[in-house]
Design a binder for these strands. Sequence first.
DNA 1: GATACCGGTATCCTTTTGTATAGCGCTTAA
DNA 2: TTAAGCGCTATACAAAAGGATACCGGTATC
Lengths: 126, 126
Amino acid sequence: MILKQPVHTPEACTQSIGAVRDTLYVLSGKWKLPIIIALSAGPSRFKDLQRSLNDITPKILSKELKELELNEFVTRTVYATSPVTVEYALTRYSQTLNKIIEGMREWGVQHRKRMMSNSRKEKKLL
Amino acid sequence: MILKQPVHTPEACTQSIGAVRDTLYVLSGKWKLPIIIALSAGPSRFKDLQRSLNDITPKILSKELKELELNEFVTRTVYATSPVTVEYALTRYSQTLNKIIEGMREWGVQHRKRMMSNSRKEKKLL
DNA sequence: GATACCGGTATCCTTTTGTATAGCGCTTAA
DNA sequence: TTAAGCGCTATACAAAAGGATACCGGTATC
C-alpha cells in the first residue's frame, strides 16, 4: 500500500524539502514554466516564442532555452532552409511536469478569484 | 462536463501562463515552499525554523515569513512569556498548496532517480 | 559579571536575473 | 537598393535575491 497522506516526522519533512528544492532548482526563474506552457501548443520558433511570452528579451529567452535543453525538457532542431529555421519543441520528459503545471494553473486561477473577492470586501468596508 | 485535458489554443495557453505566473509570483524564491513544508510538521519558533532549514540566514527567513504572512499562508503569534515567545503556524489557506507541493515532491524524487541512473550510464560509457 | 539564547534588525557585499540597445550574417520582398 | 525578418550574440547596466557578519535589548544561567 502506498501512503497518500504526507508523514510529518522531522526526517520525512527534511526529505520533502530536499525533493521540492531539487524541483525548484530545475524550474528556477520566472520563465521556464511559461516557456514550457507556450511550447505545449506545439513546436515554435525563437521569434514566435518571444512574442508568445509578452516580450521576454532574446538574451533571457536564449539562456532559458539552453537550460531547458540541458534538463531535457526541450529539443532544438535546426532545419537546413536558408536562412536556417530553428524549432523548439517539448520532449516526452517535459510531460512529467504536467501535474505540477496543472496544479499551479488551478491554484493561480482560484487565488486570483480569492484576491478579487477580498478586494471587493475591502471596498464595502470603506 | 469539465474538461480535464488542457486546451492548447493560443488564448488558453496565454491564460494558463498568466495563472502559473500568478502562482510563481506568490511562491517566488528559494525558501517559501521549504518554509511551508517545515511548518507542516506543526507550529515552530523562529530559531527552530532556522535550524530546520539548513541555515537560512535570519534576514531572509524574516523577510520570507513576512511575505508568507501577507499572503495568508502563515500566522505569527506572540506569547507574553518573558522573554516573549513567537510562534509561526500554517493557516488553512496554506493547505490549498498541498497539491502543488505534493506534485513537486514526487517530481523531485523521480528526477533525482533519473539523474542518478543517467550518471551511472555515463560512467559505463567511459 | 560573563556568557548564551531568543527574535529579530542593520549593513555590506556578491550573485542572479532581467532590461535596453545594438549589431551580425543571411535572405526575401518592395 | 533599401527595408525588414530571422536567430541569435555582445555589451552595459539596473534591480532583486541571497549571503555574511555584526549587533541589539531582554532574560536566564553559570
